[in-house]
Design a protein around this nucleic acid. Structure first.
Lengths: 145, 145
DNA sequence: TTCTTTCGATTGATTAGTCAAGTGATACAA
DNA sequence: TTGTATCACTTGACTAATCAATCGAAAGAA
């Protein structure tokens, strides 16, 4: 009757993994007083600053409204600054934001890495990366039309 | 300086895929007037009913508070019923919920399946499923201690 | 010069989730 | 019998996201 396909089982695993690993990430990042979503955004800003709100929204694949609120929170915390020029708001890290990002980056990387390396060999990781890239590019393509 | 590991690149792909595919799913499910999260919960109830709130929460890995709010919405829409016995609330589908689930199930399965089958061979799918299961079990383990 | 379009950003309403404190009934000990 | 502890569930305050409506400045057309 209700027959699941292999693809749908992959789907479930992926959804569960992402959700659970976000919970773990948030738990880990609590000591740095920051959330996984906030770290993701700060990291993008650190890499591409100065960056416009709309470009940033696209990079982290969230809506214009979503990035507006997120940046309001980050601005309130003093991590980022917005400067208006024409109708564009350019985003960059403040000193506090830079410090926070530098403080957290290596630890977060280490955290993510050790979780995956604790259960997959180097070969398996290469294989998983190749497959994930394929499916992710497919959703990206589908999203843009 | 900022060197990313293979594991962290896998992480990014996974986060992006899950997020984008949820957007696609929600977009697809809009025609059935339901969200991906709601479908997920209805599907679990349909499989395990009657099921207690706490067991349901565990199955979809969300908090007790989260499931309480979600069920309130589903109850308001008339998809589920809660019956109190002792201190446990037993959840089951209403007629309307059953109909909705049956209506949506095949289409959602087809949607998920075609997205993945459009870019991975059967062999690749098997391989991806095996690897995803490994990492997901790892996060699950980590979460429970 | 005024009128309209365009476009980035914001905001209100809603869904979805978290944590922590609170509720209310039962069970069990003093 | 009167606490008190326990346990499932709820709720308030918050983060995070969506969509749709709106704002406001600039650009271009009449």
């Amino acid at each position: 009757m209700k027959k699941n396909t292999l693809a749908s089982l992959i789907w479930v695993r992926m959804i569960r993994f992402t959700h659970q690993s976000t919970v773990l990430s948030n738990d880990f990042l609590k000591q740095y007083d920051i959330t996984a979503a906030q770290f993701d955004v700060l990291n993008q800003i650190g890499t591409y600053q100065p960056i416009s709100q709309s470009e940033l929204a696209e990079r982290v694949t969230i809506s214009a409204g979503g990035i507006s609120r997120m940046l309001s929170r980050l601005e309130r915390e003093g991590y980022i600054a917005r400067s208006i020029e024409w109708k564009v708001k350019w985003i960059s890290l403040t000193e506090k934001g830079r410090t926070k990002l530098d403080e957290v980056f290596e630890h977060q990387l280490q955290f993510q890495t050790s979780l995956i390396e604790s259960c997959l060999s180097k070969e398996e990781q290469k294989s998983l990366y190749r497959l994930m890239t394929k499916v992710q590019k497919q959703t990206e393509k589908q999203l843009n039309n």
